[in-house]
Nucleic acid binder design. Structure first.
Lengths: 114, 114
DNA sequence: CAATTAGTTAAGTGAAAACTTTACTATTTG
DNA sequence: CAAATAGTAAAGTTTTCACTTAACTAATTG
């Protein structure tokens, strides 16, 4: 019963990789930067005091998780945020949270009826 | 300009700890279990093939992040989900995502006007 | 074309994280 | 009360992760 099983269309997203990518504060800082617009690797590196090589590795993690897309033109690799990955993670959390909240409501209703 | 700065009330939540806690698949499995209702440590441990000691450690991480609350009665420690932490993480993602989506819209509008 | 800029790749280091083992305490139950 | 159950705490092991260094390629610019 309850809601019909949703068709699995968007399973290109690996929730494991997404949450792992989001687990690191530097990668979240990169995402935050990219939310204001696309940026080259060297631009992303500037405010973070780590080497460009480290930034490259973080961006690779973000890219294989699907949270970021990159494209190289000339010698510049431009990174841009890919919002669908975030949506997938938001959905995961929302599902768990609402499942729990519904459970709580039912419990409260039962207790209220006594 | 733009929106007024939101008063910081709910900063009891450490977004760093929350995202770190969510970064581990075993901890997400525990949360998933708890979304269906509170459970004792030993119940949580059963489907995961790791020792109870390891589960205790995961639950400690979840608890210090605020995603889970636990209480010991007799010899049983019962764990229950705390949805507010998830909401905080959802909010973080939604903010970054919508910032980016608004940016995209403005860009599209500009291009559309040409 | 020489110098600079942007990024890449591989290998190594150190620290954090996940997990186990072991020994132990407190509670419950037959 | 003896045995079983539920969890705890500390210490050690293994694995993963973030980061650096260093040597290199390709594109751009003075």
């Amino acid at each position: 019963m309850a809601a019909a099983t949703a068709p699995i269309i968007h399973s290109t997203f690996n929730i494991d990789r997404i949450f792992h990518a989001l687990g690191d504060p530097t990668r979240r800082a990169i995402l935050e930067h990219l939310s204001h617009g696309p940026a080259a690797l060297s631009i992303l590196a500037k405010p973070l005091d780590i080497t460009v090589a480290a930034v490259v590795q973080h961006v690779q993690v973000l890219e294989t998780s699907g949270l970021v897309h990159t494209e190289k033109v000339g010698r510049v690799r431009t990174c841009r945020m890919e919002p669908a990955g975030l949506s997938a993670a938001e959905r995961w959390m929302q599902e768990r949270r609402t499942t729990w909240e519904r459970k709580l409501d039912r419990l409260r209703a039962l207790l209220g009826e006594n």
